[in-house]
Design a protein around this nucleic acid. Structure first.
Length: 420
DNA sequence: CCACGTATCT
DNA sequence: TAGATACGTG
């Protein structure tokens, strides 16, 4: 937790960014159906010298901000204490973003590609009517998440989880958010590449994760994605964008409920636990097919195309290399406006003085590009056209891949999983 | 305890 | 819906 007192002092002593200036750069968008509450909150914020952009008809703006990753969402009643602490969240968030981007950039320099994140708010609350919102603080945000196991009903207050980046503002009005990775085209391509390397009969989350070598990505996430892909429940962002993508493979033999399993997944049985017996391992992995106990879905395997290839035979040499980047690398905030058209909401996310402050306090480079929602080479993409730009790019037939290539239990990967 | 697959949640 | 999480199993 940041120490308010120290920071407060630091901020005020900071020559490069006066407190007043900094606060004025923190834009706060208020959305509240209760005009009185709106006024009250606005008043609090203004007392604290934030720049308040409240407007009774700012629904559109609110939505744009949300779409672009607003990250603080505060419920009423807002208190002065909360207002006074808001700026810390801005700084913290920005600092974190810088650090994470640095990490990702470093990783990129080593050939590894970070993952793209988006805010769950953005994901789940698109349909949310602004009138339901109490009030919110809109700020740019993208970051990484890490799982946090919680009880199901555990919905009440939570402390700040440094790994999860969830916040709780003391007086029970908790400001929490949840991040989730987005399986982009590129990320999925890596996933598929790993799957193919492993062989479709024996792709396990852990192995996939290791092969993917994507910083920040967790096994759980890979497992989740694997599940979706196995059940053919995943659509690439492009497909999603292109309007549900026409159901694609509806020409299935088994009828409407037909859901071919991918990658030859075999729950439990197919999984040769490291040291474990892994009965009938060796070559004939299909032997498990009948020994199968409770996976009716496996019947689908038979219906599938039944590729006999090994992973190598159809190894698509997909170039994950130069990930499509929206614009010229690291251009100054407005420089690449041609490729990165600004949104109206962008103006919320521009805090030059805050960056300055961060630089002072943390020693982080100022050229970190935080001024712009679409910073460039890192994995944070705000550009809504980003995927569209990709679409023209390397046409990796990821989806069709799965459709055509089903599991292969006959693959002769003698190499079992070598660890654990 | 770890990793997995599946079910369920958000 | 997509992705995260819960949960039971080996």
């Amino acid at each position: 937790m940041w120490e308010l007192g120290n920071l407060w002092t630091d901020v005020r002593n900071t020559p490069m960014a006066s407190y007043h200036t900094m606060m004025h750069e923190i834009h706060v968008l208020l959305v509240d159906h209760d005009s009185e509450g709106l006024l009250n909150t606005a008043k609090l914020l203004e007392i604290c010298q934030y720049r308040v952009m409240s407007s009774d008809d700012n629904t559109h703006m609110a939505m744009r901000a949300l779409e672009n990753g607003a990250f603080l969402y505060i419920k009423k009643p807002a208190t002065m204490e909360m207002m006074r602490c808001l700026w810390q969240h801005v700084l913290r968030e920005k600092t974190r973003i810088i650090r994470e981007r640095d990490m990702l950039v470093a990783a990129n320099n080593h050939g590894a590609r970070g993952i793209e994140f988006r805010d769950v708010i953005n994901h789940h609350r698109e349909d949310q009517n602004p009138s339901n919102l109490e009030s919110m603080i809109m700020m740019k945000n993208k970051g990484k998440s890490k799982k946090k196991v919680r009880g199901r009903n555990e919905d009440d207050d939570e402390e700040y989880d440094s790994e999860n980046h969830r916040y709780t503002i003391n007086n029970s009005s908790n400001v929490k958010r949840k991040m989730c990775t987005e399986w982009t085209h590129e990320l999925h391509a890596k996933f598929m590449n790993a799957v193919e390397q492993l062989g479709e009969g024996r792709c396990f989350p852990k192995e996939i994760l290791e092969l993917m070598n994507v910083p920040g990505l967790t096994r759980m996430q890979v497992a989740s994605h694997l599940q979706k892909c196995r059940n053919d429940n995943w659509r690439s962002p492009l497909e999603r964008k292109s309007h549900q993508a026409a159901q694609h493979t509806s020409s299935d033999p088994s009828g409407p409920g037909y859901k071919p399993r991918r990658f030859g997944s075999k729950p439990q049985l197919g999984k040769p636990r490291s040291g474990q017996a892994h009965e009938s391992n060796g070559t004939g992995e299909e032997s498990e097919t009948h020994s199968e106990t409770e996976m009716p879905t496996n019947g689908n395997m038979g219906t599938g195309p039944t590729m006999t290839n090994t992973s190598h035979s159809h190894h698509h040499q997909q170039h994950f290399g130069p990930m499509v980047q929206p614009g010229p690398s690291n251009g100054p905030p407005g420089a690449n406006s041609s490729t990165n058209p600004r949104h109206s909401a962008d103006e919320f996310f521009n805090f030059p003085d805050v960056d300055c402050l961060i630089q002072n306090l943390s020693g982080l480079p100022q050229g970190s590009g935080l001024n712009h929602p679409n910073p460039g080479p890192a994995a944070y993409h705000f550009d809504p056209n980003y995927h569209e730009q990709n679409s023209g790019g390397p046409s990796m037939d990821t989806k069709s891949n799965w459709s055509s290539e089903t599991s292969n239990f006959e693959s002769d990967h003698s190499e079992t999983r070598g660890h654990d």
